[in-house]
């Protein structure tokens, strides 16, 4: 990409976009204004962010984010909690005879569902210090909203396109990705 000049005046949402992206937020189609501007000015934004040392990624499934190859310990923990929740959701939907991928994005996740998930997988959520549906809401769902992975709706939360990152990660897990105690 050769970009001789970036017209900053044309990037009217630069400040908002930057603020969101540096905080780990994923901008997707639901964020209409920022999404449209990124979509239209992608060359300028890409060049600008690259020069600032960021790696702006556009995922064709409909979201933009700053790629990173490591997380702070806290972020890492959050990310694992999100991953676990998503995988449990998939299993739960499949067990209840639903099309998991469709239900994942089409069904609002309400508190009742969260309680069910925690009850059914107590052993797993205990490891993440999540003991109740409202813990799950606070520690996972609200954080997903802050990262742009979900949005809050009237009766719960709807998951959004960036969840695909977790599904990609799911497909990568196998015996070799297991880290023994000594490697931690």
């Amino acid at each position: 990409m050769t970009m001789t000049q970036i017209n900053l005046d044309a990037l009217s949402h630069l400040q908002a976009i930057n603020k969101k992206l540096v905080a780990g937020y994923h901008i997707c189609e639901q964020d209409t204004l920022m999404w449209q501007e990124l979509d239209q000015q992608i060359e300028a934004y890409s060049a600008l962010f690259t020069a600032l040392g960021h790696d702006l990624k556009h995922d064709s499934r409909g979201f933009y984010y700053f790629a990173s190859d490591e997380s702070t310990p806290n972020m890492g923990k959050i990310s694992r909690a999100i991953a676990l929740t998503i995988y449990i959701l998939i299993e739960h939907f499949a067990n209840t005879g639903k099309d998991p991928m469709r239900a994942l994005f089409d069904e609002p996740n309400d508190l009742e569902l969260m309680q069910t998930l925690v009850q059914l997988n107590k052993h797993l959520f205990d490891q993440l210090e999540i003991f109740s549906g409202s813990d799950l809401r606070k520690d996972v769902y609200l954080r997903m909203v802050r990262l742009g992975l979900a949005r809050e709706v009237e009766n719960g939360f709807m998951l959004q396109a960036p969840i695909h990152r977790y599904i990609d990660a799911l497909m990568e897990v196998n015996e070799e990705t297991f880290l023994g105690e000594d490697e931690q």
Partner: peptide, 8 residues
């Protein structure tokens, strides 16, 4: 090993 990372 596989969790997605976020900038923060």
């Amino acid at each position: 090993a596989v969790q997605p990372h976020f900038v923060s």
